[in-house]
């Protein structure tokens, strides 16, 4: 997985990403760090074609541009969203089954899920520890449980690549740590390449194999977490070091 000369400029003229070059090693857990508006979401959305680059390319694991085989690329790419993006009145299992839609083509596309698919959805829910809530409506679950359903929906795809856009930003710190633990453990066990955006430096240090920091649409740090120094953090979050400290305290 790689991006080459990736740039995104919105219609309003705002530059979300300016000429970013990055390569992602298979199986690594990469954390994108940076303040809101730095371009983390835009980068993640480019990686599975939800946002369209205005310059450069996104190259899939096999080295071809993803635009050429978008549906196939999305099938093997799981995505976890900040706001979970579940259908509240459907059960956890039915929400997880949405993750399998891409695997069904042709006349089967609009048929109800098969027994085998339901079994797969339950396996995914079991992995995130929610098997006993499989038939509970998603809107009756807690925030942390909802995000675990979101992870199960991505996991059921058996992805090679996992993208997560601020997966814990709307959770309390304790729940956030549990959800990130789960996500990191599953990606490690299954050898899934993970690219996860976070805004808490603390979490980034704890889970990342590699940290890529963005500020104003450009990469300002790229390296292992132990190399991330206090003045790097100050650079990422603007000139004021106190902002970075309070960010850590929050985490």
């Amino acid at each position: 997985m790689a991006v080459a000369g990736l740039g995104v400029r919105f219609g309003s003229g705002v530059v979300a990403l300016g000429r970013v070059d990055l390569e992602f090693a298979p199986g690594a857990f990469t954390v994108l760090l940076g303040p809101s508006g730095a371009g983390k979401s835009t980068l993640l959305r480019c990686l599975n074609g939800l946002a369209t680059p205005t310059a450069g390319h996104v190259l899939g694991p096999d080295g071809t541009p993803i635009a050429r085989r978008l549906r196939a690329h999305r099938r093997e790419t799981g995505m976890v969203f900040q706001q979970h993006q579940l259908i509240g009145r459907l059960s956890a299992m039915e929400n997880v089954l949405i993750g399998l839609l891409g695997q069904r083509g042709g006349w089967r596309a609009l048929m109800p899920a098969s027994r085998a698919e339901r079994e797969r959805a339950l396996d995914a829910l079991d992995r995130v520890g929610l098997l006993d809530r499989a038939l509970t409506r998603a809107d009756a679950l807690s925030g942390g449980q909802q995000q675990r359903v979101g992870i199960a929906r991505a996991l059921v795809q058996r992805p090679r690549l996992m993208l997560a856009d601020e997966p814990v930003a709307s959770l309390d710190p304790v729940t956030a740590a549990k959800v990130l633990d789960l996500l990191a453990r599953i990606c490690r066990e299954d050898g899934i390449t993970a690219i996860v955006s976070l805004h808490q430096v603390d979490f980034a240090r704890r889970y990342a194999d590699r940290i890529v920091a963005l500020a104003a649409g450009a990469v300002v740090f790229d390296g292992p977490p132990e190399r991330l120094a206090q003045d790097d953090i100050a650079r990422i979050y603007g000139s004021s070091p106190t902002a970075a400290v309070s960010e850590e305290e929050y985490a």
Binding site: S91, M93, E119, L122, D123, L131, A134, L135
Partner: peptide, 14 residues
């Protein structure tokens, strides 16, 4: 068997 029980409950709801 837990899977089967859940799927049976889901099927009867269906």
């Amino acid at each position: 068997s837990r899977h089967a029980a859940i799927l049976a409950a889901d099927a009867s709801a269906g």
